[in-house]
Amino acid sequence: MKQVIEIIARCAEGTCVSRPFRVRADDGSLYWIKGMGTGWNRNELCYELLCAKLAAELELPVAGFDVLEVPEALLEFCAVPGIRDLSAGPAFGSLYVDDASSLLPVEVSSVPQELRWQILLFDWWVQNEDRTLGEKGGNVNLLWNPVGRALTIIDHNNAFDPEFNDVAFFEHHVFREKRSRIPAPFLLEQKQRFGNMAGHLDDLIKAFPDEWVEQDERPGDFAPETVRAILSRFDRLLDVFGGQA
């Protein structure tokens, strides 16, 4: 497992709810990390890792990711404000993306149409309402590089939301206007891919850190059976999206 060797800063207040830490790992790369400690439930770390794996298998442009070890000694002498919110142990690391910033409303139409379809379907499948954007802003969790015209998807700790609401999702998702415009052949292809991955959930989660999946009978516990039930939603894809022939 890669180790964190330097904790550089914390995400500024008001930029995102989870406020991850920017760090350097022993491979020389910069990451944003979320770990065990105040503000993060262990199940959210599992959701981050699982969604990153699912997105990568679907060939969505998810930021590079890894599980990084945060040494106790590094925390002991760290002067970064808020460091007490981070605990030693395994953390979810999302690779720092250069020359990219949060997608703006005026840039939405620059995202390739098929990619917009894919992200909308993916977020609905994993019950992720945390990809909102309107004229007054939102929490889009998409990074855009205007020069390279490259999109990167990030932040899935709020996926598998037990209070997920289809109506709210289709009112606020950044790509909501694509709901009834996705061709039926594309929906069928995605339904098959979702189904294949749902059937291999055990393989996807078997390497999760023990510290994240241990059962203490508290709200922060990761529940594979709940995730399995949510991923079975793939079977409703055509009914919900009503693709065009």
Rank of each mutant, 00 (worst) to 15 (best):
D155Q: 01
D155W: 02
V140C: 12
A91I: 06
G199F: 06
P183N: 04
E6I: 05
F175C: 05
V111Q: 04
S109Y: 07
G195F: 08
R176E: 06
R149Q: 14
R10H: 05
H173Y: 02
L115Y: 07
T38V: 11
Y96W: 15
V4W: 03
Y96L: 11
H173F: 03
A88M: 07
W40H: 15
R42H: 08
F77T: 15
L86P: 07
T152C: 08
D99I: 02
S87Q: 12
D98E: 13
D216P: 00
V213C: 11
V227P: 01
F92S: 05
Q190N: 09
E135R: 13
D85S: 14
K34D: 00
W124V: 01
D239T: 09
A100K: 07
L75Y: 04
A207T: 15
S110Q: 14
F164N: 01
V70E: 02
G148C: 06
M36T: 12
V174N: 02
F169N: 04
D130V: 00
N128K: 03
N43E: 08
F194A: 05
A25H: 04
S180A: 12
N139Q: 12
Q192A: 15
D210S: 13
D210W: 10
R116W: 07
M36E: 11
V106I: 09
N157W: 00
C46V: 10
P146C: 02
G242D: 10
K178T: 12
I205N: 01
L68V: 05
